[in-house]
Amino acid sequence: MALPYDSAAKFREYARPEMLVTTDWLAEHLHDQDLVVAESDEDVLLYETGHIPGAVKLDWHTELNDPVTRDYVDGAGFARLMSKKGISRDTTLVLYGDRNNWWAAYALWVCTLFGHPDLRLLDGGRAKWITEGRELSTDAPKRDPAVYPVIERDDSTARAFRAQVEAHLGQPLIDVRSPGEYTGELLHMPDYPQEGALRGGHIPGARSVPWSRAAAEDATFRTRTELEAIYAGEAGLAPDDDVVVYCRIGERSSHTWFVLHHLLGYPHVRNYDGSWTEWGNSVRLPIRRGENP
């Protein structure tokens, strides 16, 4: 049975308040039978240093990706993974992680492709839980494997592929990378490895709205009013717009996808997970450099 929603006043402003939980709510429901908490981090060892008691680990590199093809696991692979983690189709799955929930949002987006019914994000992620001095544990969670059906991945509504982005040129695109990556001065995030893009710049027509604009200092999401001022105001998105978001490999843009689709309620938002590491390496695709879309 699905757990009750978090009725926090801030969430009620959002289009889909049920997609978020507060640290208070999570602490209160931590031992509920139908809840699984999963930590998804950039650093593969961070979970081992201490995690929310009972939380399982979900690694984007080694578990959500297909080991050979650049793609996500298929329906059978996802069912195996969920089953192993003790997650069934009826489980309320709460995700959280480091770095403002980048990877947690990414994992949530991948779970969306498989239509998992009840997915939620911990507002503020790992950082907020720790800042508040809440309990951490290094004990491996004891969960029995669950039965998870094989559901084929549906890439048609939340995911965009390269050819679809080419066909989308001229319609709203949001580039969520840092300003230097957008203009083409940088081929990768500041202080991050060069993850192999041969060309710098952005997809023509894409507006620059770095993902971090949506996050407050404590890693929680900004209020609906603040978010609307950014995305509807500055970026000029209209309510019915068909929007594609992208970054470098699709993780930061999952954060923005979550904001646009679930918090602001835009019905058609797709994450282009090929992102700049595909676009910036592809032969003869149009690229724009500099500050203008």
Binding site: V44, H61, T62, P67, P193, E195
Partner: peptide, 11 residues
């Protein structure tokens, strides 16, 4: 490689 990923090992 399989536990950490080749990308992370590059560091």
């Amino acid at each position: 490689q399989d536990l950490v990923s080749p990308l992370r090992l590059r560091g």
